[in-house]
Design a binder for these strands. Structure first.
Lengths: 210, 210
DNA sequence: ACTATATACTGAACAATGCAGTAGAGTCAA
DNA sequence: TTGACTCTACTGCATTGTTCAGTATATAGT
């Protein structure tokens, strides 16, 4: 009956290792800080701590403020041991879901405006999060990290995000320029420009670097 | 009863728009070509074409070779209309699941070797796919694209992948160098180097570019 | 007093994954 | 030629994860 530990369970357990949280705080914190490494739904993040309790990795108690009550979760010694064990296990391969790219790959079923729209949406999403992380780093400079002793980890993680976001924004610009040369979404095939790009890629050179 | 169309349904429908496929071919093709835009399980890719049939977007018939039989799926006119309609709809925001980054973020529960291991696994996964795409581009140069009129789309999509893979590999190198300076996974906090990195990031500059 | 937003969740339906199982066909080596 | 292995070609079932709607209190602004 005691369900198994998924990567999501360890993610929540890792948050609990920092301090006790209420279910609500946990969902919010997880959605903010893990958004670009391990994105999970609010619903799941409410369920995971309950599972941790049944496994003995956390304890729970209700706190009440007036007529409201909330569940507070706290990690146990066994929970910390489980976390340490997790660090030694194999990771799952990375997974990238980018619908805008799917739209590009099948852009020949729609108009140029439609692909451009998909790229714009990708750019907007990425820009927003990019901006948010830059601001977060600004707040860290003013002593704003909630767990100061962990700043080195957050910051190294942030280098990944900033770097990836910049990369995607740069690619979207590039893709828009390329598409700007297309007379239509279809039937272009292996023309001169495409051949040039293919040649670069086949030599493991990115057309964005040159 | 007639389940709704998900993005995955459209992905399969888009493949069907290229030519008729058997279920088996479809799962293989989808896992190869959509792996880095819309990764889906074999199981789902067997189920989707059946749903398309119930919705009238595809037809199916059994072919047999000896005692073996296989299901062939073909797109209908309505299926093509549905695809065209899809291109006009909003995309979902991108989603990145990278367990190795989660391990980095909570690296203080394990050893330096453990984080390095996670980064190594990420690098290996990315390298393999990077290599595969470079080779695919080589084959395109020799007229190897199965749908030549769609080469421009595949190649622009490939620029994204190559660019992203290079970016991740570069970051993994960077992260390894940084971690190489750490005496342990924990308690480092906001030291000089971290402050330097934070300052760069807060000004929207990537330490990898400088 | 009213509206909007934040807090603080839960149930149920549905989407997607993982895994085991079934079974025919071709290849290669002892 | 028999056995082992891999590829083709799926399906059923249990479990994991998402979406959406619903419930209800608290607080801030107009």
């Amino acid at each position: 009956m005691a369900a198994r530990m998924t990567t999501s369970s360890y993610a929540v357990l890792a948050l609990l290792s920092l301090k006790p949280w209420t279910g609500y705080e946990l969902t919010n914190q997880a959605q903010r800080s893990l958004r670009y490494a391990w994105p999970k739904s609010e619903r799941l993040l409410y369920s995971e701590p309950k599972k941790l309790v049944t496994l003995g990795y956390a304890t729970t108690h209700k706190e009440k403020a007036g007529k409201r009550s909330r569940n507070v979760y706290e990690i146990t010694g066994e929970g910390r041991e489980a976390l340490a064990g997790w660090t030694e296990t194999k990771t799952q391969p990375p997974r990238f879901e980018i619908e805008a790219l799917l739209r590009l790959l099948f852009a020949d079923h729609g108009t140029l405006e439609a692909v451009r729209g998909a790229l714009d949406e990708l750019e907007t999403d990425v820009r927003d999060h990019h901006q948010a992380i830059v601001e977060l780093m600004g707040s860290y400079l003013n002593g704003g990290h909630p767990f100061p002793e962990r700043t080195h980890l957050s910051v190294l993680f942030a280098t990944f995000q900033i770097d990836m976001f910049k990369g995607i924004e740069r690619w979207v610009d590039f893709a828009r320029t390329e598409i700007g040369q297309w007379p239509s979404t279809r039937g272009l095939g292996m023309n001169e420009r495409t051949e040039e790009l293919t040649r670069l890629l086949a030599h493991d050179e990115s057309p964005l670097d040159t």
